[in-house]
Design a binder for these strands. Structure first.
Lengths: 121, 121
DNA sequence: CGGCATCCCGTCCGATACTG
DNA sequence: CAGTATCGGACGGGATGCCG
C-alpha cells in the first residue's frame, strides 16, 4: 500500500497547462469577472480561443461557474465556485515558491551564461 | 501593480506535465533512487525515454541531482537536491487536495453518466 | 461582447527497438 | 543497467478571421 502520490496525479491534471492555474488564481482573488476582463487581466496575451477552452475544462471540473445574463450585447461572467476556492490551498503555496524560484533562476542565468561562453571557446 | 500571479507561472512551468511532479514527490520521499527503481515506482507505466527526458529538465532546474558511479554495469542514482526539497511545500498541499477531489470526482461521475443517458434519448 | 472555425506549430507522451 | 534512436499520435498553445 502506497500512501504516496495517491492524489497528486489528479491535481496535476486539473491545474496543468500554462493557463488553468492562473485563471483560477485570478478568479479566486477578483471574484466574478467578465470574459474579456478576465482575458485582459491575464498578462494580456491569452487568445480568446484558449481562454474559452480552458474555462470549459474548469467548469467541467466544477471549479468555475458561468453566469450568462442573456442580454444583447452578451454579458457573461465567470465566478469561482466554493469548491474551486479550495484550490487556493495549494495555489497559494505554488505562488510563494515561484517567487523564490524566480530570484534563484535569475542568479543561475548569469551562471549558465558564463558556462556557455566557456563552451564556445 | 499586480502582486498576484507573480510567481505562479514559473511554478506551473516547473511542475507541469504528467510526470515531473510525481517524480519529484517520489524522490523527496525515497531519497536517492536508481533509474529503473524510480521507473518501477511510478505506477510502472512511464517509458524510459520519457523518464530520462523529465529527469533532465528537473536537473536543469536544479531540483534533482544525478550521481553516476561510473561502474560496469552502470549504476546511476537520482537524488532530490536540498533546493528541490523545498517544492514539498506545495506538492504536499496538491496531494491533499487531489485526494479530496478524487472522492468528489467519483460522485460526479455517476451524475454525468445520468446526464449522458438523458442526452442520448 | 463572447465566443467558434480554421490552420499551424511545437511539445508531450507512448511503444518499440537498440546500444555501451 | 541506463539510457538513446526512431516513429507516431494526441494535445497545448497561438494567429487570424468570422458570427450572432
Amino acid at each position: 500500500m502506497k500512501e504516496d502520490g495517491i492524489g497528486l496525479d489528479v491535481t496535476l491534471e486539473v491545474v496543468c497547462g500554462k493557463w488553468k492555474g492562473l485563471i483560477l488564481w485570478k478568479l479566486i482573488h477578483e471574484n466574478h469577472l467578465r470574459f474579456n476582463a478576465l482575458r485582459r487581466s491575464l498578462d494580456g496575451n491569452i487568445s480568446s480561443r484558449i481562454l474559452a477552452r480552458e474555462l470549459k475544462k474548469l467548469i467541467q471540473d466544477g471549479l468555475v461557474e458561468r453566469i450568462d445574463y442573456e442580454t444583447v450585447p452578451p454579458r457573461v461572467e465567470y465566478r469561482v465556485t466554493p469548491y474551486g476556492r479550495t484550490t487556493a490551498s495549494f495555489l497559494e503555496k505554488m505562488n510563494e515558491w515561484g517567487i523564490h524560484h524566480k530570484r534563484r533562476a535569475d542568479q543561475q542565468e548569469s551562471l549558465t551564461d558564463v558556462s556557455n561562453q566557456l563552451k564556445e571557446q
